[in-house]
Nucleic acid binder design. Structure first.
Lengths: 126, 126
DNA sequence: GCGGAGGCTAACCTCGGTGTCGGGTTCGAG
DNA sequence: CTCGAACCCGACACCGAGGTTAGCCTCCGC
């Protein structure tokens, strides 16, 4: 129920051990250490890692996640820090970046569709 | 009117010499060589580079562009190769990949919006 | 033929998350 | 106590378009 080591956390979250160590290196995840130096995670770490994964999946960089995490409630059970307007601004900028990527990709798809249509037409004509 | 070297092509297209050499390395652009080894481009290269740029701007990778280019008419004045069904299939796969990226990003934006909403709410509550 | 502008190649760096490898250490069951 | 599994850390590879540097060579006008 309580402590687990990195292997089990990896198994439970589906995240590789490598990534978990990376998260720690980036300050996203903290771990107690056994006297021998092995990482020891509390049960709440599972949820935290899941949160981190969601944010990574959202295309955010570790630096950004680092700022967001302390503001998320029910992330670690701890009291959520107050979100500064600056943070909100940064997150909004981040969302705009994603918006731009989406419209770029939509345009990509259009171009590709045109090419496909042209290619199909050529094939049909030949 | 006819031949030009890499510097002029770069100037006319606004693409760096480095990129032009990269395009050649990727098989997107061919160049004659002078006896001394300098690249010699025909006037039509300008249009071709512009096409390449459009496709890059559309977010396509060089590998994809490499497949598309020979099928585009009025690209180089040459006869457009007949699009094989295989190519159409590959392009369609590429479009599906882009579609997946788009839906991933849409979900990402949702997640981010939730975080922003939460953060704003926390700030408002504080 | 000389000099400067322009071109050539090869090679390293960027960014960021993660796979992978290697060599050393620790844990825990038997 | 011993052995194997699990863990530690550091470091390199990767992807992709292209910036940048270094050292050498070519082109062309004078």
């Amino acid at each position: 129920m309580d402590g687990m080591r990195i292997g089990e956390l990896a198994r439970r979250t589906g995240v590789s051990e490598r990534s978990l160590r990376y998260y720690e290196q980036q300050g996203l995840l903290v771990a107690q250490r056994t006297p021998g130096g092995h990482r020891e995670y509390p049960a709440t770490a599972v949820d935290r890692v899941v949160h981190i994964q969601e944010l990574f999946a959202a295309g955010l960089r570790s630096r950004t996640i680092n700022k967001i995490l302390p503001c998320m409630r029910d992330c670690d059970g701890g009291p959520s820090e107050t979100a500064t307007p600056l943070l909100v601004e940064e997150l909004t900028a981040e969302r705009d970046r994603i918006d731009r990527m989406i419209s770029d990709l939509l345009r990509s798809r259009e171009v590709l569709d045109e090419v496909i249509a042209g290619a199909s037409g050529a094939a049909a004509a030949a």
